[in-house]
C-alpha cells in the first residue's frame, strides 16, 4: 500500500465510511443520547485525529466503530462492509494499556496472540512478532511480562501487537493520556514513524489539541454531547514532523489557536450549523 500523504487525490478509496451514526443509551428507562449524528470518511493511508471536549462521547464513538457497541442508527462500513462486530483487520490501542495486555502472557506472547487467533503458523508468528517489537524498540524485553515494564513501554507493546496484526485500520483511543509528557512525545513520534513506514491507516482519538495537530493530516472536532462533528480541519504542516521545530512553526500556532477556539465553542455548546 502506498501512502497518499496530504496531497489530495482525486478519488481516494474510502476505507472507513461513517454515515449518520447514532447511539442512545438506556439508563433505567431514561434514554441518554450520546451520539446524535456522525458522518465522515477515512481514506486508506490517512492519519485522522478526532478531538473533542471531555465527555464528548469519544470513547463511545470509538467503541461503536470497533464493533464493540451496537449503534442505535446509521452505519459504519469498513471496506464497504457493515461493522456489526469487531471486523477482520481492525486493531485497537486502548487508553488503559495495563488492562489491555494479558498479564499472564509474556510480551512476545501478547504480540503473537492475535496472529495465533488468525491461524498464522508458528514460524511466521515468531518472525512478525520479533519485527514488530523491533519496530517499537522493544526487541530486548520479549520474554518479560507486561507488569515488569513501565507504562510507556506497555503502550509500545500494545502498539507492537496492533502493528504485527497488519491491520487495515488502526483505532487509537486516547492512547497516551496516561503516560508522562516525555514518554508521550516519544510515542507520538513512534506513531508518525510507524504510519509512514508501514503505510497504516490510523484514526486517533484524543482530548489533547496539540497532539491532534502534531499527529494528524486532518482533525475532526467533536461537539458536546450529544456528539456531532463540528469541524473538519486540514493540517497543512510539512510531512516530516519534529517535536521541536514543528511545534514552533507559525502554522502550528495558528492551527492550535483555531482548534482551541473550536473546542472552546464546542464546550460552550455550539452545534453544527451555528456560526463558528
Amino acid at each position: 500500500m502506498t501512502i497518499s500523504d496530504s496531497v489530495s487525490v482525486q478519488s481516494p478509496d474510502v476505507l472507513l465510511q461513517v454515515r449518520g451514526l447514532r447511539k442512545t443509551y438506556e439508563v433505567r428507562n431514561d434514554p441518554i443520547e450520546a451520539i446524535r449524528r456522525l458522518t465522515f470518511d477515512i481514506h486508506a493511508g490517512d492519519l485522522v485525529c478526532i478531538v473533542g471536549p471531555s465527555g464528548a462521547g469519544k470513547t463511545t464513538l470509538l467503541r461503536s466503530l470497533a464493533g464493540l457497541l451496537t449503534p442505535s442508527g446509521g452505519s459504519a462500513k469498513l471496506d464497504g462492509e457493515e461493522i456489526v462486530e469487531p471486523p477482520k483487520g481492525m486493531a485497537v490501542v486502548f487508553q488503559e494499556y495495563a488492562r489491555s495486555l494479558f498479564p499472564w502472557l509474556t510480551i512476545a506472547q501478547n504480540v503473537a496472540l492475535p496472529l495465533k487467533a488468525q491461524g498464522v503458523d508458528r514460524a511466521t508468528r515468531a518472525e512478525k512478532t520479533a519485527k514488530a517489537l523491533e519496530a517499537v524498540g522493544l526487541a530486548d524485553v520479549a520474554k518479560r511480562y507486561p507488569w515488569q515494564l513501565s507504562g510507556g513501554m506497555q503502550q509500545r507493546v500494545a502498539l507492537a501487537r496492533a502493528v504485527a496484526y497488519e491491520p487495515r485500520i488502526l483505532l487509537m483511543d486516547e492512547p497516551f493520556a496516561a503516560v508522562d509528557a516525555q514518554t508521550r512525545a516519544d510515542l507520538e513520534d513512534l506513531v508518525r514513524n510507524l504510519w509512514h513506514r508501514l503505510g497504516l491507516t490510523v484514526l486517533f482519538v484524543t482530548h489533547d489539541i496539540d497532539e491532534s495537530i502534531y499527529l494528524g493530516q486532518r482533525v475532526l472536532v467533536l461537539s458536546n454531547r450529544p456528539t456531532e462533528i463540528l469541524d473538519d480541519i486540514a493540517i497543512n504542516l510539512p510531512d516530516e514532523r519534529d517535536q521541536l521545530t514543528t511545534r514552533n512553526e507559525p502554522e502550528f500556532a495558528r492551527l492550535r489557536a483555531e482548534v482551541y477556539e473550536r473546542v472552546q465553542q464546542a464546550k460552550a455548546g455550539r452545534r453544527p450549523g451555528d456560526a463558528a
Binding site: R63, A66, P86, A91, F94, L113, P114
Partner: peptide, 19 residues
Amino acid sequence: VLRDTARVYRLTPMMRFST
C-alpha cells in the same frame, strides 16, 4: 478492557476460554 481486546483481535472461542 481485556475482554474488549480479546473481541477486537477475534480470539477463537477455544482461545477465549483458555487464554
